[in-house]
Design a protein around this nucleic acid. Structure first.
Length: 352
DNA sequence: AATACGTGGCA
DNA sequence: TTGCCAAGTAT
């Protein structure tokens, strides 16, 4: 492969076909950063409305550093990977307090900030600061794995490192940001996972996969383990016209979001028993379980759940936040003010 | 190195 | 319906 030609022709293609995206209107590090964080594992079409809403509420680093966490989580609700939002708040505050509100421009310093890893550090350095640095994401891995019929799995460190070196070797001095974005645009619009549009690709004459018609076989990946499925129960506990919700601890799944109390059903346990046990563990109260008011199936990244929701009443005791950061009695109509994951939001809406 | 971490689109 | 995958990072 002639890396010089690939690089030159890719840039020429990008000059004509770059997508007009909201975060490409400036090179403002704050805006580039917001977009890159939101775009992790998330499609452009999904991100755009979130990006615009976020910028309307937090137009710069100062307003984000001063932000209310609940407001930030509400704006993030539905995007997933919620630690991204919490890390953005942390990073904004670090930059305001320790760096006079300026992003560092070196990879090493950028990577010290919460939520900034190899990719975002490279993206900020190259796109926002014009430095000659690689930003390698899933698109780049796929594009170059096909170009070279790359024989190593791209979801292992060695494979990623080799492709990073290939990209490094063809990085056009002075236009690394455009080059990185060109690779991503090509991967997102033409060299897509399934049914790549090779008839529109500017690189077919360099592409080994195209020449051998092996696009479907690349990139190679190590297979993931099958994911387990769990039965989960949740309770709608009532007190007058309010229901009880709890705020999950900051770490872990859906950290910092609100939920209806409950948990996993153990092996051999029936749903009622599980719910009584979970509520006793989480809130320190005994309940009577009433009607089943809904079943929800949901797939997280590494497991699936079937959630059964029950109406329930407290028999004795005052609920306490034994396993959560906070508990609150809330009227269902007010629950939109409480950031939640998908399943709990569906349950909340079912109560209206 | 392997696993945890959300959600929605698509075949 | 099920499984794969999408602008990754933290531990």
């Amino acid at each position: 492969m002639n890396t010089f030609l690939v690089s030159r022709e890719l840039l020429a293609w990008y000059d004509r076909h770059a997508r007009g995206l909201p975060w490409r209107e400036t090179h403002d590090p704050y805006r580039v950063w917001v977009s890159e964080v939101m775009l992790q594992q998330t499609r452009v079409d999904t991100v755009i409305p979130y990006y615009q809403k976020w910028l309307e509420n937090f137009s710069d680093l100062h307003s984000l550093a001063a932000a209310d966490e609940r407001q930030a989580m509400q704006l993030w609700e539905g995007l997933g990977y919620y630690s991204r939002a919490r890390n953005m708040l942390k990073t904004a505050r670090i930059l305001i307090e320790q760096r006079a509100g300026q992003f560092p421009d070196s990879i090493a310093e950028l990577k010290k900030l919460p939520g900034i890893g190899d990719y975002i550090a490279g993206a900020l350095a190259s796109i926002a600061f014009g430095r000659d640095e690689v930003a390698l994401d899933g698109n780049g891995l796929r594009v170059f794995a096909r170009l070279a019929e790359f024989d190593q799995p791209i979801n292992e460190a060695a494979g990623k490192a080799a492709i990073r070196e290939l990209m490094q070797s063809m990085l056009p001095q002075g236009r690394a940001g455009d080059f990185n974005q060109a690779v991503m645009d090509l991967g997102a619009t033409i060299c897509v996972s399934h049914n790549p549009q090779c008839d529109q690709c500017p690189l077919t004459k360099h592409c080994h996969a195209f020449q051998n018609n092996t696009q479907d076989r690349f990139p190679l990946r190590i297979k993931k383990k099958p994911i387990p499925q769990y039965a989960v129960v949740a309770a709608v506990l009532r007190n007058g016209d309010t229901v009880l919700v709890d705020k999950r601890r900051a770490d872990g799944l859906l950290g910092g979001l609100w939920e209806f109390p409950g948990g996993k059903v153990e092996e051999g346990e029936d749903l009622h028993t599980a719910l009584v046990r979970e509520i006793r563990e989480e809130l320190g109260v005994d309940i009577t379980v009433h009607a089943d008011i809904g079943t929800y199936r949901h797939a997280y990244t590494h497991f699936k759940v079937v959630v059964t929701v029950f109406e329930a009443d407290i028999l004795s005791g005052e609920p306490a936040a034994l396993a959560a950061d906070e508990i609150q009695w809330v009227r269902p109509v007010e629950l939109d003010q409480y950031p939640m994951g998908k399943v709990d939001r569906l349950i909340a809406h079912s109560l209206l």
